[in-house]
Design a protein around this nucleic acid. Structure first.
Lengths: 350, 350
DNA sequence: GTGCTTTGCTAAATCCATTTAGCACATGCT
DNA sequence: AGCATGTGCTAAATGGATTTAGCAAAGCAC
C-alpha cells in the first residue's frame, strides 16, 4: 500500500551517516573530506534502495531544475518544427535536462503566459524558436535565465542560431555551375520584399545575397526571375507553366522544394525530362524532395543541427554574442545532370 | 541587484494576514471561512506584488506538478508526431498543465530513463505515444500516475487513443462507390502480414477489415491487389507502372498517401488523367495530398484530435478502460470524379 | 602537555507553499 | 450564567533536498 518514495534520509540511515554526508557524496561535491568508506556506504545504500532524488525539493533549494523551455510560435506547421525539437531534445537528453515544449501561436498573450509558466518552473534556460526565421517578439518580462533565439533573432537576446543562408545560397549556384550549366538559368520564387529582408524572414535575404554573389562570381545572369508572394506548389506550377509557353530554360533555381515540386508538375505535363532537358536545384530538403522522381537536389535546412546547437549554446558558458550560423547541407539527387553521384553529402570544405 | 522573487509570505505581510490565509485564498479553497475583505486584501496584495507561486515548493508539498510527460518513440520521423504533440500541447495548455517531451527512439534503456525522469519530476500523468500504432513496450517500473497510450496499446495500461481505422476503411470504399465507381478497383499496398495485424501495426488490420466489409456490402471485389512491404512512393510508382502494362484500372484504393503519390507519378507518365481515367482514394492526409494535382482525396489520420483526446483522458476522471477511437476525417479533393465539391469535410453522420 | 591544524563528519537552517490543529471571540440557546 | 456552536483567523509542522556553521577527535610541533 503505502510504500513511499525513498528519501535521502532513508539512504543516510541505511548508510549510518548523516543526510549531509549522503547529499554531498551523491551530488559529487569535489572538496569534501568524507572518507572513501563513507562514499562506498552511501552509494551502496542508494543503489540498494533504488534512491532517486526528489527534483522538486532540489529545485526549491537550488533554484535549478535541469530543465529548459522550448517556446515556439508553431509546432504544427511543421516539417520544420519537428526537426528543431528533435535536435534540441536530443542535446537536452545528453545534458541530462528535460525539455518543456510550449506553443504560443505567435500571440503575445500566450507568449507572456508561456514565459511566465516556464520561469515559474525554474527552467534553467529559454529557447525561443520561430518557424520562419525572423525578428521574434519576446515578451518584456524580467528573464533571469539564459536565452537563445532559434531560427530567429531578437535585439534583446543576441545569442541566436540561424541557418547559414548566405553560404547555402552560394552552394546552390555552385552546384549548377559545377554540373556544367552556364546559361539560361531561371530563378523561381523571387520576391523583392523578401530579398530586402522586409517580409517574413531576414535570413532569406542572405540566401538571395549568396545566390547573387555566386552568380556574379561565375559571370552569370538569370535569364528570368519569376516572382511570387508565397512559396507553395501551385505557385511553382503556374509560374513554370507560364514560363514554358514562351521559352524553355536550361535550369530552374527554386527558392524552396515546394516551388520545385510545382515546377516538376508543370515540366512533366510539358513532357520535359529532368535533368536532361531542365535541371533543378532548390532549398530546404523537405521530405518531399526525396519522393520526387528524379529526386530533387536541394540545399537543406539543418533543423536538427540547429536545435541541437541551440541547447548547447544555452547550457554552455554563454560567451559569444553573435549569431551561430549552422551550415546548410548539400543534398545531391537526380535533378542535376550527373557529375556527382547520388546520395546526401555533408557540406564540403569550402 | 538582488530583487528576489515575491513569496507568499510577502503577499501575506502586505495583506496583513497569515500565510495560511493567503494560501487558502489564492488557491481558491472552497470551504474556508475567511471574510470577503480578507479575500480582497490578499488578491490585491498578490496582484500589486506580481506574485507567482513557486511551483517547486508547491510540488514538493502536494506531489502534484501540473505537468505531464509525453514519451514517444520518435518525434522526428514525423508528419505524424507533430500533430500528436500539437494536439496534446493545446489540450495541456487549456488544462493549465505543461508538457515535457521525451524521446526514446524505441530503445528500452532510454524508455526506462524517460519514465524515471518523468516520475522524478512528479508529473501528473504519462502519455506513451507510438509513431506507428502498435503494442508498445512500457518499461516495467512502478508507475503511480495515470497513463494513456496514444496511437498504440499496452496490456498493462488499457486507456488508449487510436484512430477509428475500421470506419475509416469503410469510408474510403464508400467514397468510391458514392462517386459512381463500381468496377475495376485495384487495392494498392496490400500486405498479408499487416492485414493479420502481425506487422508493425494492429490498427492497420482494422483498416483492412473496414475496407473488406464495405466492399462486401457494396457487392464488389477488387480486380487486383498489389502487395508491398513498405508504403513509400517508389513502391506505389513501381507497382502502378507494372499494373499499367497489363491493364488499366478505373480506380486505385491506396493504403496511404505516399503510395498514392507514387501512383500519381506512374499515371502521369502513362498519360492517364486523374480522375477521368483513373480515380484515387487514399489514407493519412499527409501534407503531400494537398500538393498533388489534382488534390488527393484521402481519409485523414486525426493526429491532432488524438493528441488532444489523450490529454483529456489523462487528466479526466480515469474511468473507461476501452480504446478511444477517434474518427478519421474524410478529406475530399479532386482525385475522385465530382459529386461532392471540394474542401475538407468532417466525418458525416453515418 | 599545550596549542594549533587537519580530518571526518553532523546539527540545524533554508528554500516556499500547503495543511493540520487549534485559539480567541462572538453568538445562540436554555 | 453556562455551555455548545460558529466564525475568522493563525502557529507550526510538513515535504526532501542543499548548505552553512561548527563540533569532536586525531595529528603535529615544540
Amino acid at each position: 500500500m503505502g510504500k513511499k518514495r525513498v528519501t535521502l534520509a532513508d539512504v543516510a540511515r541505511l548508510a549510518g551517516l548523516s543526510t549531509t554526508a549522503a547529499s554531498m557524496i551523491l551530488t559529487g561535491r569535489p572538496d569534501t573530506r568524507l572518507s572513501p568508506e563513507a562514499h562506498k556506504k552511501v552509494h551502496d545504500a542508494a543503489a540498494s534502495l533504488g534512491y532517486r532524488p526528489n527534483v522538486a525539493a532540489r529545485a526549491l533549494r537550488t533554484d535549478k531544475s535541469r530543465s529548459i523551455a522550448f517556446i515556439s510560435d508553431y509546432v504544427a506547421t511543421t516539417r520544420f518544427a519537428s526537426g528543431l525539437i528533435r535536435g534540441a531534445l536530443s542535446a537536452a537528453e545528453e545534458a541530462k535536462h528535460v525539455m518543456l515544449v510550449l506553443e504560443t501561436g505567435g500571440e503575445p498573450a500566450r507568449e507572456i503566459q508561456a514565459v511566465e509558466t516556464a520561469l515559474d518552473r525554474q527552467v534553467d534556460g529559454l529557447i525561443f524558436a520561430a518557424m520562419r526565421a525572423r525578428e521574434v517578439f519576446v515578451p518584456d518580462l524580467a528573464i533571469n535565465v539564459p536565452v537563445v533565439m532559434l531560427n530567429g533573432t531578437s535585439a534583446r537576446f543576441p545569442n541566436s542560431v540561424l541557418p547559414g543562408e548566405y553560404e547555402g545560397g552560394r552552394k546552390a549556384v555552385e552546384l549548377l555551375v559545377g554540373s556544367g550549366i552556364e546559361e539560361d538559368i531561371v530563378l523561381l520564387g523571387h520576391n523583392a520584399k523578401q530579398e530586402e529582408g522586409l517580409f517574413r524572414s531576414e535570413t532569406i535575404a542572405r540566401r538571395f545575397m549568396g545566390i547573387r554573389d555566386a552568380m556574379a562570381d561565375a559571370g552569370l545572369q538569370f535569364s528570368a526571375e519569376l516572382s511570387c508572394w508565397n512559396w507553395e506548389p501551385n505557385f511553382g506550377y503556374e509560374l513554370t507553366r507560364k514560363l514554358l509557353k514562351s521559352r524553355r530554360p536550361r535550369a530552374l533555381l527554386c527558392l524552396n522544394d515546394r516551388l520545385a515540386f510545382g515546377a516538376y508538375q508543370a515540366l512533366g505535363e510539358a513532357g520535359l525530362k529532368i535533368p536532361e532537358d531542365v535541371a533543378l536545384v532548390s532549398f530546404d530538403n523537405d521530405e518531399l524532395a526525396s519522393y520526387l522522381r528524379p529526386g530533387l537536389t536541394t540545399i537543406g535546412l539543418p533543423h536538427e543541427d540547429m536545435g541541437r546547437r541551440a541547447v548547447e549554446l544555452l547550457l554552455g558558458p554563454q560567451e559569444n554574442a553573435q549569431p551561430d550560423l549552422v551550415p546548410m547541407p548539400v543534398v545531391v539527387r537526380g535533378s542535376l545532370p550527373a557529375a556527382l553521384s547520388a546520395q546526401s553529402v555533408k557540406p564540403p570544405a569550402t
